[in-house]
Design a protein around this nucleic acid. Structure first.
Length: 425
RNA sequence: GCGACUAUGGCGAAGUGGUUAACGCACCGGAUUGUGGCUCCGGCAUUCGUGGGUUCGAGUCCCACUAGUCGCCCCA
């Protein structure tokens, strides 16, 4: 048995990689327009960073981290998410030194030790942004608008934006207690999962999909009713700014995010639909205490991250066509030794002129070379046989229209460029 | 981490204990001289995820492992 890829990993093969490149190129363009700049942080960090940054009691830290000891016995962990590393770098390099809002984006692989399923791998890819240094609700709204812009640009259908406020250290504890008190009365009627949630993370009970639990929590208090003044003011300002930006959204008081560091604004982009078509593709929110928690000054932050696999999955399921690549400008068909030598040189010149070109290396017959040209999606076939070689010309055939004419060997690149209405270069 | 199902050539897929493992697609070659399609002909798995067991005999039964899929937990 040959060695196989590790469980939960994926090879992104030609045909698929083009879609990835397309998505990456589009998001980079949008990020740049909003003045986000790329940051590339290590794929592994000290384990402690995630324990402190993501939260000791989160599932990620408790059971999903790829943790290992290096040769000197240091505990390192493959990053399970992007924010902690970015915040660490932000603090370590004192990017807060300038009195500016710092806008950063990242993209790359993340690692979580989980049972693989559709849309869930052990190595997966996230693209995200983090904006540091402002409490302005307009920034919250702009961050969401940016994500909205990207998803609509890429053609995601049936997209919904849910927003909520999860409060802050000033108001959340009291709410949390109120919720626990309320639910204590019906504890025995909740599903087993919710009974354990009640102890670990009571807010999550509100997010249960069980009908019974939904009913029992129907009139449970919501965070929104318990926000302190500053959180309430902030939340309404966020909604106003979203309205002003024309971003459709739904206030979902039951929206809870899994990571500990969120304060105030929390949001999710959800694709509505049946079965696998549905689900959260992007989550984000504000984390005003995280920078300080990780040893930096008291600088607020807000960001989002989305999974590339899930995004591509949704787009594919919705029938959105993304580039699959494989196009070729010219395929040089050569017959005979001398012509094959010349074909190699001709391909070199075509490429130098900015065209993509390939030749046959398998000594195929003329007919077979034509078939190959078709399979490669070549726009032009350049035919070079003994006769052409002797006369210093080639047959240039447009494979889409079938038109064929003779052009001088020296002018092939120019002729192709002209026909493609493309500048030589 | 728990539960269920699945695993045959590059892909899809028959085969449900008995000698040489259907078929379709793709691919390669040919149907007399240098033009892509179609048609026709030919080729293409000493082998059925891996290892072990039962049996006179296993792709077909059993066990383990690995991997995939689905559900749960959680999440991207």
């Amino acid at each position: 048995m040959p060695i196989q890829k590790p469980r939960g990993t994926e090879d992104i093969l030609p045909g698929q990689s083009e879609a990835w490149q397309y998505v990456e190129q589009r998001v980079r363009e949008w990020f740049t327009r909003y003045r986000y700049r790329e940051i590339r942080t290590p794929l592994f960090e000290h384990t402690e960073l995630f324990q402190r940054g993501v939260g000791e009691t989160t599932d990620i830290v408790e059971k999903e981290m790829y943790t290992f000891a290096d040769r000197k016995g240091r505990s390192l962990t493959l990053r399970p998410e992007g924010t902690a590393g970015v915040v660490r770098a932000f603090v370590e390099h004192k990017l807060y030194a300038e009195p500016d809002v710092v806008k950063l984006y990242y993209l790359g692989p993340m690692f979580r030790y989980e049972r693989p399923q559709a849309g869930r791998q052990r190595q997966f890819h996230q693209i995200g942004v983090e904006a540091f240094g402002s409490l302005d609700a307009r920034l919250d709204a702009e961050v969401m608008e940016l994500a909205w812009r990207i998803f609509t640009d890429l053609g995601v259908q049936n997209l919904r934006l849910d927003v909520n406020s999860v409060g802050c250290p000033a108001c959340r504890p009291a709410y949390r207690q109120a919720l626990v008190d309320q639910l204590a009365g019906v504890k025995d009627e909740l599903c087993p999962d919710c009974q354990s949630r009640l102890l670990r993370n009571p807010l999550r009970v509100l997010d249960c999909k069980q009908e019974r639990c939904k009913a029992l929590t129907q009139d449970a208090p919501t965070m929104l009713d318990h926000l302190c003044d500053s959180c309430r003011t902030h939340f309404s300002a966020v909604r106003e700014a979203l309205e002003a930006l024309g971003v459709p959204h739904t206030v979902n008081p039951r929206l809870v995010r899994g990571l500990d560091y969120y304060t105030q604004t929390a949001f999710e982009f959800i694709v509505e639909g049946e079965g696998h078509l549905a689900g959260t593709i992007c989550g984000g929110g504000r984390y005003n205490g995280l920078v300080a928690e990780l040893g930096g000054p008291d600088v607020p932050g807000i960001g989002f991250a989305f999974g590339v696999e899930r995004l591509l999955y949704v787009l594919a399921a919705q029938g959105t066509r993304l580039p699959a690549g494989g196009d070729l400008d010219c395929f040089v068909i050569a017959l005979g030794e001398a012509a094959k030598n010349q074909a190699l040189l001709l391909a070199q010149r075509l490429r130098a002129a900015g065209l993509s070109a390939d030749i046959d290396y398998l000594d195929r017959k003329l007919k077979a070379q034509f078939k190959v040209a078709d399979r490669y999606g070549a726009r032009f076939a350049v035919i070079l046989g003994d006769d052409e070689l002797a006369r210093g010309v080639v047959q240039l055939k447009n494979l889409a229209t079938g038109e064929q004419d003779e052009v001088p060997l020296a002018g092939v690149a120019e002729a192709v460029c002209q026909r493609l209405d493309r500048r030589e270069g």
